[in-house]
Design a protein around this nucleic acid. Structure first.
Length: 318
DNA sequence: AAAATTACCAACCGCCCGTAT
DNA sequence: GATACGGGCGGTTGGTAATTT
């Protein structure tokens, strides 16, 4: 594996695979001087490597605590979820997996998980069961916020349809579904009348749960969202999201703070069918409220009842 | 057994951002 | 404010190992 060491003819720097001696020099330097000042390393040690190469070697291979290979099922599942939430922010994903590097996760994703997705061993999105007749969905955003996603003329303004969510299946769906990053919470949930279960005995009154969501767009757009990679749908302020996840601990992140409020933007609307005059320009700003339930499944130690391949059942009432 | 193909992954490249001057 | 520089990040390359034909 790897590359044959070679000397760049242009600057005399070595490229390619690192030798044991080079590793030793690098480790000794970091032990003495600490991380950083990578460009000084070559000058002070005579190592014929550029600073970037030194940093990369240290961060991805020599740094203490690096785990190599044997990515567990829990880790894989977490990678999949985080990728759905964060997209190709490998460093952020790696930050949630102790001992794993962004490079390793990136390689793992590109060579293994992506292949699984291609082979349909992992559904990239939840499967959706549709019953009923309504072609359009009309749902209200909480707090009067407008989340207009190119609603077509077929939408009957003011007429409210209801997305009915199977609460068992929708456990943690606010995170794992494509809407998670938008942080849409506290929606109306109408108990399903069509299936037995805990909600079937209720009177149909609105129930607030952290897993609900509400939106306002056509069913076609709705499905586009379901089929889309979240990273392409929204532009969450990652730093704030990260802070929310990490809290003040900056550590294990297994117990994110409750109900912190973060701000984000919906970038260019949802899905391909929505559009703005500016194309990629953000067209909505709104507040997003996260909760422990929202983020809990991001962490390996969470009690997560949501499994890959689980279905979301969505019923249109008539 | 040999050739071709695929999988894996270390390392490089170029861009971007923050900081120092 | 402009510029230079260092560091961080994601995308990509390229070499070896493993597998298939």
């Amino acid at each position: 594996m790897g590359r044959i060491p070679r000397i760049s003819s242009e600057d005399g720097l070595t490229k390619g695979a690192w030798s044991a001696l080079e590793d030793e020099i690098l480790v000794d330097y970091v032990k003495t001087h600490g991380e950083g000042k990578w460009s000084n390393l070559a000058k002070q040690t005579g190592l014929k490597r550029c600073g970037k190469s030194c940093r990369l070697r240290w961060m991805n291979y020599l740094r203490p605590g690096i785990k190599r290979g044997n990515i567990s099922g829990d880790e894989e599942e977490l990678i999949i979820r985080l990728h759905k939430l964060l997209g190709n922010r490998w460093s952020l994903i790696a930050g949630r997996l102790p001992g794993r590097t962004d490079n390793e996760i990136k390689n793992y994703w590109n060579s293994y998980i992506a292949k699984k997705a291609r082979d349909h061993q992992f559904p990239s999105t939840r499967s959706v069961e549709i019953t009923g007749k309504k072609p359009d969905i009309r749902v209200d955003l909480q707090g009067g916020a407008a989340l207009s996603c190119g609603v077509g003329p077929q939408l009957q303004q003011g007429k409210e349809d209801v997305i009915q969510l199977n609460p068992d299946h929708m456990k943690n769906a606010a995170l794992t579904g494509p809407f998670s990053g938008a942080g849409l919470t506290k929606p109306k949930l109408e108990p399903s009348k069509s299936r037995a279960g805990p909600l079937s005995s209720t009177s149909g009154e609105i129930e607030n749960t952290p897993t609900n969501f509400i939106m306002d767009f056509s069913s076609e757009e709705f499905f586009n969202v379901l089929d889309s990679d979240f990273a392409k749908l929204s532009d969450v302020n990652i730093n704030e999201l990260k802070n929310t996840i990490e809290g003040d601990s900056g550590g294990t992140l297994l117990n994110p703070p409750l109900s912190q409020e973060i701000t984000g933007t919906i970038n260019g609307g949802f899905g391909s069918s929505s559009s703005t005059a500016e194309g990629d320009q953000p067209n909505n700003n709104y507040n997003m409220v996260s909760s422990a339930d929202l983020f809990q499944p991001l962490f390996l130690d969470s009690n997560d009842g949501w499994q890959l391949g689980d279905d979301i059942d969505i019923l249109f009432s008539d």
